[in-house]
Design a protein around this nucleic acid. Structure first.
Lengths: 125, 125
DNA sequence: AACATACTACGAAAAATTTCGTAATCCAAA
DNA sequence: TTTGGATTACGAAATTTTTCGTAGTATGTT
């Protein structure tokens, strides 16, 4: 089942992708440990989800050794865009600027962050 | 069950909220029609979900007449913030500016939109 | 070689969400 | 007042996601 592109990761899948993006290729054990205590679920749960993700094409894995190494097959950027797009359409009536302004309200920004955004906006002129 | 505050609307629930925010108080029929053909699900499905949402406190309703009138009990803004916050944490490592820049990439903005954002940013100085 | 340990495989239960069929009820029109 | 159409109520099936128990298998240690 290799048709990852348009597939929307579930909540749990997103958490795992998160960890893999940070760690790079990793074992189930490593991912499970990163998810940590607050997760509260068992090791085999993490394993199972990662196996399912592999079937879906979200992950791939190297099974040549005892400990399988899992790799994310979707990039953080790609996934961000996917989720963002859906959100803009679903919650912000398709308006990116509304979403951006909503995000700016969401959490106070440091001066650095504001500057960063301003600089970024320059390219749209 | 009146404890709406922290509850995360599901996918379907979000679509219904969307319609109610646009229409204001409305009947199931009206909401269902707005959801429209592309939805492809039956009337009773919409009804059921709206009933469940009422139990959860996401909606309230006026049952004094034959056609019940449903009202959203959560604001668009509140929900946007809720989902945004979760997304920033889950996908953008807690960084609002990253999310904003990601959103800007997501879809080309019109000059008006860019100006709007710039104006908005001024208040952070 | 035998054993303890760590890992994967697998199936199924549990939970959450979505969907719909059917029945009961109300309302309006004939 | 009776009938037809629309609406709500209800329960359950279907689907999707999450969770885990158990069994099997490989690995390294003694």
């Amino acid at each position: 089942m290799t048709g990852n592109k348009r597939y929307q990761p579930t909540e749990s899948e997103l958490k795992i992708l998160q960890v893999l993006w940070n760690l790079g290729p990793a074992t189930v054990r490593e991912v499970h440990e990163q998810l940590g205590q607050h997760q509260g679920t068992g090791y085999t749960t993490t394993l199972k989800i990662m196996q399912i993700m592999t079937e879906k094409g979200l992950l791939s894995r190297d099974t040549s050794n005892r400990k399988h190494i899992y790799i994310s097959e979707v990039s953080r950027e790609q996934t961000q865009q996917q989720v963002l797009g859906k959100m803009v359409n679903g919650l912000f009536q398709g308006s990116t600027s509304r979403m951006v302004m909503g995000a700016l309200e969401n959490k106070p920004l440091s001066k650095e962050e504001v500057d960063e955004i301003k600089a970024y906006l320059k390219q749209f002129e």
